[in-house]
């Protein structure tokens, strides 16, 4: 199935968890926030939230300048 990650379409297996998506993308969960359809998914739920067709995922990292 297809989902959007930071505005780009990617293919993932149906029902894949956010935790597994991050592994697929080689991202480390502790350094980022995951937003699904406009809502933060807490890290404690990354393993249980299953992605569905058309989900819009944003991977957000902090910026430190200023």
């Amino acid at each position: 199935m297809q989902i959007q990650v930071n505005g780009e379409a990617i293919e993932v297996e149906p029902g894949r968890s956010i935790a597994k998506l991050l592994v697929q993308l080689q991202k480390q969960a502790r350094y980022l926030a995951v937003e699904r359809n406009g809502l933060l998914v807490p890290r404690s739920r990354h393993g249980e939230v299953a992605l569905v067709e058309g989900d819009a995922i944003e991977i957000v990292t902090l910026v430190g300048g200023g």
């Binding site: 969960a29 350094y31 926030a33 902090l62 430190g64």
Partner: peptide
């Protein structure tokens, strides 16, 4: 920390020096 558990390790994130502002 609800948002991000840990800041990026030094040298792993862009700064104003590498990306400008």
């Amino acid at each position: 920390r609800c948002l991000i558990e840990s800041p990026p390790d030094p040298g792993t994130a862009d700064t104003c020096d590498t990306a400008g502002i």
